[in-house]
């Protein structure tokens, strides 16, 4: 395998980009997956349930 500076730079410039797009897609799908809505809403509210506040 011929690992020159040019091949590495090229890989960085091409595969790096594909990787970035793929990764963003996965994150977007996870975030907006309808079935996840409920768990996110619960997580958002649940930390307020237990009273860990200063009691002013």
């Amino acid at each position: 395998m011929d690992l020159t500076h040019e091949t590495l730079v090229e890989a960085a410039k091409t595969w790096g980009l594909f990787y970035l797009i793929g990764f963003s897609l996965c994150v977007l799908v996870y975030t907006f997956w309808p079935a996840n809505r409920e768990r996110f809403d619960r997580a958002k509210r649940n930390i307020l349930d237990e009273d860990d506040q200063p009691w002013t």
Binding site: A43, K44, R45, I47, Q53
Partner: peptide
């Protein structure tokens, strides 16, 4: 959220 006693705007 704890101090404001409000959930985060968008999870």
């Amino acid at each position: 959220p704890k101090r404001a006693e409000r959930p985060i705007f968008s999870y």
